[in-house]
Nucleic acid binder design. Sequence first.
DNA 1: CATGAATGAGGATTCATTCAT
DNA 2: TATGAATGAATCCTCATTCAT
Lengths: 202, 202, 202, 202
Amino acid sequence: MGGTMDGTKRQRRGDTRQRIQDVALELFAEQGYEKTSLREIAEHLDVTKAALYYHFKTKEEILVGIFEDLTRPIEELIEWGRGQPHTLATKQEIVRRYSDALDGATPLFRFMQENQATVRDLRIGERFKERMRGLREIMIDPEASLVDQVRSLSAIFTLHAGMFAVHDLEGDPEEKHKAVLEVATDMITQAHAGTKPAQDEA
Amino acid sequence: MGGTMDGTKRQRRGDTRQRIQDVALELFAEQGYEKTSLREIAEHLDVTKAALYYHFKTKEEILVGIFEDLTRPIEELIEWGRGQPHTLATKQEIVRRYSDALDGATPLFRFMQENQATVRDLRIGERFKERMRGLREIMIDPEASLVDQVRSLSAIFTLHAGMFAVHDLEGDPEEKHKAVLEVATDMITQAHAGTKPAQDEA
Amino acid sequence: MGGTMDGTKRQRRGDTRQRIQDVALELFAEQGYEKTSLREIAEHLDVTKAALYYHFKTKEEILVGIFEDLTRPIEELIEWGRGQPHTLATKQEIVRRYSDALDGATPLFRFMQENQATVRDLRIGERFKERMRGLREIMIDPEASLVDQVRSLSAIFTLHAGMFAVHDLEGDPEEKHKAVLEVATDMITQAHAGTKPAQDEA
Amino acid sequence: MGGTMDGTKRQRRGDTRQRIQDVALELFAEQGYEKTSLREIAEHLDVTKAALYYHFKTKEEILVGIFEDLTRPIEELIEWGRGQPHTLATKQEIVRRYSDALDGATPLFRFMQENQATVRDLRIGERFKERMRGLREIMIDPEASLVDQVRSLSAIFTLHAGMFAVHDLEGDPEEKHKAVLEVATDMITQAHAGTKPAQDEA
DNA sequence: CATGAATGAGGATTCATTCAT
DNA sequence: TATGAATGAATCCTCATTCAT
């Protein structure tokens, strides 16, 4: 327990904070937040629990750190979206970019999705909701029919679910990924068409 | 403190097992499985922790009990689905019925969705996956294009997400519910149309 | 650690709560509150730490329990004092009774005196202050000169300090005890005489 | 956050040791010894914990340093007292000087009084007892009656208690201070009178 | 049908201290 | 003079579970 030498470490320097986040995310995603103990994280890193506390004030802060880092692209996407006209092309572009953003943070999103109950009363719960609210604002037209609004929402969830639920489908991962994107794009397109009868891009 | 309603509660008899399940589900859904302790459940019922063990062998068994009870309609739906021809009408009917089944067990499904990480290594995890597999079998045509398969999957997830994500949309709950069902039906219809070029029900 | 048999216990029944308080007070008084760990208390009783938590919600509650139990006589004394006329005889009687009350709870008072910093932000801190306020009210005449008020205060503190500081004086404990009481009585008498020029009991 | 006053604080040089002691005493007196962590002290000074260890070998040494510095006047007073005749005048002078010495180190004495349990097994515990023994030697006549000895002791404790207990009395601080000194002087006078029937200063 | 009493394992967190730089 | 990084030991507390009554 907590040895000190065995060749393949010690060269690391100053990256401990990052390594903690990496290992933590891996374990959080694999086993869930509550079921992952700090002891476990520490052991994976060959440091003591106390070392974690040097870098983060609480277990929760570790998660906050991960969230802030991995979630920035989405924040930027929303920022960008707010500055664009609400055209079909924009929305389609948002879907495309959001899909990319998700890809870049798959483990975090897997974690968020599979630990909603937990996340809800963690600090990141509110932060996450805010982002979602942001996404909705740039994707959903409040004037649209309820059905079309749901369609837009569904496009987002298709992307989310697409990250995992699709595993049990047969086929090449690349292909499946593309299929998910296509379906989502399709839905947002239908939602938009319903709203403004096809004349806006003309 | 404790008790469930109206003050006079000692008259209940033999229904303790059911009451435990009710309270447990309520708390599990509200706070998550790990964050709900047996002490808490017992307090809400005004009995001792030990009493719970008279009715259930473990904490997990309480959940299993709930799951079996509330999930039966879905099992039956799948059973039924297996005996039907793979027509559009059948699939639409499945969507309709599945939507109803979800309504009848909202707290359980909310729980399942928000505690996936936990559920995964509980006994009900595998049972749940089986059911999902069953659903897929009767909803998704393995011959269909990947995109159409994803569309079908998405229909299911639309129904799931529809239970909660829709809360932040404006509008009458009834209306929203209908909208969700309509979108899901729409998707399954499109999925089917893509597969078998529109001639089968004609 | 925490064995289960060795002859001389097991016959106890239901007195565990009391035994916890006894051992706890002994250790608290001997070593201080913070330096006494629950592990230590548990070991002295040959039970597990968790057993303590069956009987008390927190470490602090153990102390609260002790305080409530041992402090009751003082509360009653104050109650009694409030109903008496503010004569010399009354005050002398209060000093006598207070001295007795202290004797009945020496370890607790030793503890309170030696752990003031700690006690201050425990729940019993405020309770203690209240009692002291009560004592002052029945012992000190707010109309009296400052000097006489200090004299009364000093009588109280003489009693307190008398419990321990007197240890290093030579002589028979009984004798010392009496001497302390005499000095305190003397002081309260002088305080009273100053106030109301000697004619009230005549 | 941190810093001690007025924003510009980097100009200090070499006085770090002193500043550590100042902050430490402040916190020790306010919160108690055990409840004041080195982290806290360091933060108040805007340095790292490790820096404290450059100046002091242990947490306890910080306290020892403070004690030695602030307690010197009392040591000197005792020294002086030992060289004086045991007359009433001497004792009254000691009371007066001791009162002053206490005033010059109020926070330390507050600390000592409120943390006796802790102090007892720190190095300064024994040192403190020695000083008290010294004080007793010059204040208390071992030939005197027990009652008069207690009276002398009480004079000392009146001074101690006078530092704080008097807070809840109404009146001007200056006045109260004087009242306390008067009572203490009074007591020592009575103690002395009892011993040697009033003829020695005549 | 249920309680009272207890356990063993483990959780997050905090602390004084060390040491290479 | 100081810091950055880490440790080992301890702390309070919580939990699911057991069992005699």
